[in-house]
Write a protein that binds this DNA or RNA. Structure first.
Lengths: 334, 334
DNA sequence: ATCTTAATCCAAAACGTTTTGGATGTCAAC
DNA sequence: GTTGACATCCAAAACGTTTTGGATTAAGAT
């Protein structure tokens, strides 16, 4: 039974309206009155009921973020979340997180949170091809912002921030060809990930730059986890001994790749070069430290929120579709 | 302008009450009516306004979690959060996250979120000595649950889940003495952390078990980050060359310790043994893989929520103060 | 004395829902 | 034809706030 405006009204003898306006800093309440009211409010530990305020004002100062269920140990997601939380706080917004359970229909959480008026806007991550979440958010007209574009053959006509992963992978491949590698394998993310196509494209361009022919059998798909890199690397090295370098499309897989290489009695960085993607914390402290394509995950989270807040406030930013550059962080696996 | 009960009422000719009760599954509405109402609701894409519902029912089905500002890259925190989110979802609860900004007064966020009725309960982590957040939550009577006890000299008479870190460190020290180490250093967390005392205690007990005298100069304090382990290790090894083993109170610091050891031309696991604490993902994939005291972080998050939900539902669990065991994961740094 | 103006204050509506306490109608039993 | 019993429905209050559109009073101008 927390204190309400009504309580202060009764204690002070003023009306609820006046209490509200006094605490709200309006000018139509006399200094003495205001002081008295503030005094009482402090004394009984009044805190405004935010739910009531939200209902009345029809805004929540809250941003929604729905976490897929299979993302427990994903360094990318938690770092993105930290960036989101940090920026949101600067705009006096909180973040409402809903974890999606395996058995639930995918859109259910979006309907509940977004359709149920619990948030002013949403950030959606991990776009897949033809993403139904975007269709839904568009249909209800709620502000949203996306981490990652759609695939190159789809139009991404919504506000997003993505990283130029095509260019990133290309730089990585060039880096390898410059060191003499000509048999370079690629471990892609699953097909349905929207960015997969960009990475494959970058790989092809990189090979092209060095006049190396594309070989389909050097390109495989991993599950984005340690095990994916591990298994595919064993497969690749067992079947194509000519391979001297492997580009994995995230750091988790790259670390799995390193382990597989070691298991085969080879030396990472000497016999087989490895490049990852993301530059998560583990990459820098792996042994040997992993050469990787860094994307500024925390910053992406921050900028997503900046963009979203502007859209919520009806001041759509000029740049609604941002492509951030990647950096090739050269460490000791190449 | 999302659809409301009123809209359905107007379209169907029934009253708002009936709409509400039809959709709510009450038995006092005829099958035909209910069917018609559901039909219209689906047709216009009705979703209940959760804010209104929260206000009316005086409960939010939301759990609050406030993240300190200095926790961006902390693997512990994000993993705890994942556990929290996962368990909360199973109880149909969402998680409201508020990031605390550096300049803000600490309790401000708690007052806003907890005092402002935005959540049904809170989980507080990273207890410090004489924690004011607990005092506050207790004063307003909001259900809460704590990750980690207070220091041994304070009474922790609130629901918590902690890990028996005293026993953990003791096991680690015993493991080291069994391998012949007699000059074992300890890098503690900052004083104000409540669990620091437990770890020091475990260290003392472990030494005692092997009849090794306690030496004050072997015990230092680090900042819980990579740099803390790094700097203190350089200090220790420069001043006390007799040291052959270092226990760091979290994995981040342990990884810093490993780096410092390498920089001094020594070999981790051979010249100097290292043991960490937590068993974050990076520990297992470090090179060499880090021997560490594992605490089940994800599970702690889950159990915190189970406990909290029970308290919220007024069914206080018999076990309100849980001490989970740690596991010494022996890898290759010892 | 009357009129303006400014300074304070407040009643009531509104946000969208759930819940309480009936109201109405129908049908069977007597 | 009266009485219950049951099925179906609904008006109004309530949750705690903000906001609208005045009302009241006092002071200053004429």
């Amino acid at each position: 039974m927390p204190a309400t405006l009504k309580d202060i009204a009764q204690l002070s003898g003023f009306s609820i309206t006046t209490i509200s306006r006094a605490l709200g800093g309006y000018s139509d309440v006399s200094p003495k009155t205001r002081q008295r009211i503030i005094e009482i409010a402090n004394q009984i530990g009044y805190e405004p009921n935010l739910v009531a305020r939200q209902l009345r004002q029809q805004q929540t100062h809250t941003i929604g973020f729905i976490i897929p269920e299979d993302t427990f140990s994903d360094g990318f997601f938690s770092q993105l979340l930290m960036g989101i939380g940090h920026a949101a706080a600067q705009y006096h917004n909180d973040v409402l997180i809903s974890t999606q359970l395996p058995d639930n229909e995918e859109l259910a959480a979006y309907r509940r949170i977004a359709g149920g008026n619990r948030v002013d806007g949403m950030v959606v991550a991990r776009t897949r091809q033809n993403d139904p979440r975007i269709t839904y958010l568009e249909s209800i007209g709620l502000p949203y912002v996306v981490s990652g574009r759609l695939a190159p053959d789809e139009v991404s006509d919504f506000p997003y921030i993505d990283v130029d992963s095509q260019d990133g992978v290309r730089k990585a491949v060039i880096h390898l060809t410059e060191r003499g590698h000509r048999h370079i394998a690629l471990i892609l993310p699953p097909q349905e990930m929207a960015y997969t196509a960009y990475r494959l494209l970058g790989y092809c361009l990189g090979l092209d730059d060095a006049n190396i022919p594309y070989r389909d059998e050097y390109v495989v798909t991993g599950n984005l986890e340690h095990s994916g890199g591990y298994e595919q690397t064993h497969y690749l090295l067992a079947n194509f001994p000519a391979i001297t370098a492997i580009v994995a499309c995230n750091d988790h897989m790259a670390l799995g790749t390193m382990e597989a290489i070691r298991e085969r009695g080879l030396t990472v960085g000497k016999d087989i070069a490895v490049i990852g993607f993301d530059d998560i914390v583990s990459a820098g402290i792996a042994t040997p430290p992993l050469t990787t394509i860094r994307q500024p995950i925390f910053e992406i989270g921050e900028r997503l929120i900046q963009m979203l807040i502007q859209i919520i406030q009806n001041q759509p930013p000029k740049e609604q579709q941002v492509l951030l550059p990647t950096t090739l962080v050269i460490r000791q696996t190449t």
